[in-house]
Amino acid sequence: MPRGRLTAADVVRAGAELADEVGYQDLAMGALAQRLGVRTPSLYKHVDGLDDLRRQIATLAVTELGEAVRAAIQGKAGSDALAAFARAFATYVTAHPGRYTATIGAEVSGPGDELYDASARVLESMAAILRGYGVEEGEMVHAIRTLRCLFHGFAALQSSNGFQWSDDAAESFDWMIDFVDRGLRGES
C-alpha cells in the first residue's frame, strides 16, 4: 500500500487482520507497520498507540458482528431468530478470533462512544429476539447476559478447537439452541 494513501481505517483494518492471524495478544505496532510497509512512527499519525488501535479494532469487530447478526435475524422470530443469531455469532468468532477477542472487556463510556453504540445495536438484536419470547424488560439484562455467555462460550471453545473428544459439535450446537428455545418458551 503506498504511504500517501494510508488512512486510519486502513491501519485499523490491517491491525484487525493481523490480530486474526497472530492472535490479539501478539498484536504489535512494529509488526503492523511492517505489514503496511511503513515505519512504526508513521502509524501514530492514525492511531494513538497500541491501546487505541485495540479499542478501534474492538469497535470494528462489534460493528461487523452487529451487521452480521442483524442480517441473519432479519425477518425471523422465535427459534429461527435465536438459531440465526447464534450461528452468525459463532461464524464471526470462528472467522475473526483476534478481533473478537478485542471486544471482550473493552470498556465503553456511554452513548456517543462508537464502541458503546455498536454494542448497543448487538444487544438490541438480542433483546428483540427475547421480547419475541415474552421476556420482561426487568429480566432483559439477565437474559441477554445468559445468551451471551452461552453463545460466547460455545463459539470460543469451537474457535479454539475445544471440542476434540467427538466430532458432533454441530449437533451439540443445534441441541443448545433447542434447549434454550424450550427454556424461553417455558417448556422442559
Results as ranks from 00 to 15, higher is better:
G4N: 13
R148V: 15
L184R: 07
G78C: 10
G49Y: 04
E67F: 03
A19H: 04
A71F: 01
G138L: 06
Q56W: 01
A28G: 10
E137P: 09
G37I: 15
S119L: 05
R3I: 11
A127L: 02
R55T: 12
L27E: 01
E21T: 09
G23F: 00
A128H: 12
S119Y: 00
R5A: 11
D10T: 02
A14M: 12
D113P: 07
R54N: 08
R87Q: 14
V135G: 13
E107F: 07
F89D: 13
R39H: 07
L65N: 08
W175N: 10
R99L: 01
G78D: 13
Q164D: 09
R148W: 01
E17F: 10
E171G: 00
P2G: 07
E67W: 00
D174N: 11
A33T: 05
H142I: 02
Y100Q: 03
E139C: 03
A102Y: 09
R182L: 12
T7S: 15
D80N: 11
G183W: 06
R87W: 13
E187N: 02
S159P: 00
S125Q: 12
G23I: 01
R185Y: 12
D178N: 14
V38T: 04
A86K: 03
S160P: 00
A118S: 14
A68Y: 06
L18T: 14
S159W: 03
S160D: 04
S159K: 02
R5F: 06
L53T: 09
R99Q: 15
F154I: 06
A95Y: 00
V47S: 05
T146Q: 07
A16N: 02
T59Y: 10
V69W: 04
D117M: 09
M176S: 01
T40P: 06
R148M: 15
K76G: 01
G138R: 11
I177Y: 05
Q74T: 08
D113E: 06
G15P: 14
F179D: 04
F163Y: 14
E17N: 11
G66Q: 14
V122T: 13
L60T: 03
S188E: 05
V108N: 06
A19K: 01
R121Q: 08
Q25L: 10
S42E: 08
G78N: 07
D26P: 00
I73M: 08
A72F: 01
R70G: 09
A170M: 01
S160W: 04
G4R: 13
A31F: 06
E124F: 06
P2M: 06
A102Q: 08
A169D: 12
L184I: 12
V108T: 15
C149N: 11
R5I: 05
V12P: 15
M126G: 00
S119M: 12
E187L: 08
E171L: 08
I144H: 00
G153I: 12
P2L: 08
H142Q: 11
H142Y: 04
L130N: 12
G186I: 10
T7K: 11
A77E: 15
W165Y: 15
W165T: 04
H152T: 07
A83I: 03
C149Y: 11
A156I: 12
A90L: 09
R55A: 10
A16H: 02
M176K: 02
V11Y: 07
L53S: 07
G138Y: 03
